[in-house]
Design a protein around this nucleic acid. Sequence first.
RNA 1: GGCGCUAUCGUCUAGGGGUUAGGACGGAAGAUUCUCAAUCUUCAAACCCGGGUUCGAUUCCCGGUAGCGCUACCA
Length: 483
Amino acid sequence: MPRVRFAPSPTGFLHVGSARTFIFNWLYARRNKGTMILRLDDTDAERNTQASVDSIFEGLKWLNLSWDEEYKQSERIDLHRKTAWAIFEKGFAYRDFTPAHSGDAEKSGAQGTWLFNPGAREMSRAESDRRAGAGEPFALRFRVPREAGETVRFTDAVYGEQVKLAADIEDFALLRSDGMPTYHLASCADDADLRISHIIRGQDHLSNTFKHVLIFEAAGSTPPQFAHLPLLVAPDGTKLSKRRHGPVVSVTTYRDAGFLSDAFINFLCLLGWSPKNDRENMSVQELTDAFSLEGINRSNAVVNFKEPATTPEETFDPKAVWLNAEHIRALPVEGLSRRLLPVVRVAGFDVSEEKMLRITPLIRERIKLLSDVLTAADFLFVDQLPPYDPAELIPQKGDTTMARKVLEKAREVLAGVEFKHDPLDQALRAAAQELGVKAGQMFQPIRVAVCGRKNAPPLFETLEVLGKESTLARIDQAVRKIA
RNA sequence: GGCGCUAUCGUCUAGGGGUUAGGACGGAAGAUUCUCAAUCUUCAAACCCGGGUUCGAUUCCCGGUAGCGCUACCA
């Protein structure tokens, strides 16, 4: 039974890259009847915030993918320390009394690889104990093997055999001088304790994995299986970041823009993974059935939004939008209607469930995002149509006279017809023939009178939903406009 | 600087020693329709460069280049 975990550190909102990592872990767990674990990696007290924890849960809740166990790393610090000291007792770590130094100074000065503080590494245990006993602060560092030719190796399910010279790995810290565990230690100690079988995470951890293997082995545990995921990058090729790229990297931005969570999941899965059979539009169940680590590829994937996104359209990858439209069309009317209703109500329109249910089929094939309902069906939500240009009422190859003639005839015919598709169809076509105009010339002025614009859902269905009273009132208004 | 990873249409990808290098999004054109959509058809669009290996490399190997990642007492 595989045990996998998603371990975000709560230092910001839920990132689309993190969401994808969560999804891949979830898919792997569900596919293989394993256990999905959520672990908050919150050992960095400086940067962690409750707001971030909330926003991560908010994002995960929207994805609607559940987990089986939940942990907080900050509640497990005793375990981390115990692990660190066990490593120390075995001689795989040493105290480093060198004062903490700034990483920037290190970077600008060093030309080669920084490996360790020679004095500290070779200090005798007696002296180390004495100075620690005297209360001198220290960090605990891993004693990376320095024998010539020594290597660290592991097999990555995505990137294959990985080998690195131990000589290229620095003596990284396990405990900070305040006694708090570092990420590497806490993460490995927890993964071992929670019996994680597969670590599926971002490729940015690929090089860190050598350190992790060292920790697992020093702690006497067998390292889990690793699978690193290619990174999600912006069109400029850089890693997605809040600072550089703004809200497009936040999961809630997709939710608020009217994405269906299943479509969003579908989109993310297609970035760096392929079912290899040309399938693209897939449900969560289909994704689960098709998922395997073998389908994951090795190169970074671009989330193709327009860099300075000016319109909502440009904010998202066109493929994400297309998939969302596909998922919307695949939803039964009731399901779609149920999701549309809150969008409409939040926008301030008072629409009943029954009415929404009747509107939904009219716009289902015309919206890409749930929020498009506001522009696609606006005229059905209000009593008073917003102002429009009377010139719009003039049909193709027609003039004001024709427009008036058509509208007056429509008003007369519609007053006496049942507001159902077929009767409306017959009556209006007959009226067009009577007037000697083309069907399109007949329908267009009515459409504009009723919808306030030329592009709208099919006329008869629209009239049926709008009802006789409103239809006649709007036609009257239109007639007055061109009088 | 050191170490590592990667490289197929604009983007996501399939493929793999001999293929018309396939699909999807987006783009263009057309069909259809009461407009808009949806749908259907068609078109343009790619194997980073250089060396090997081989009868033959886009595919395998090496090098280069580029991009990305790691190189903290951040995660």
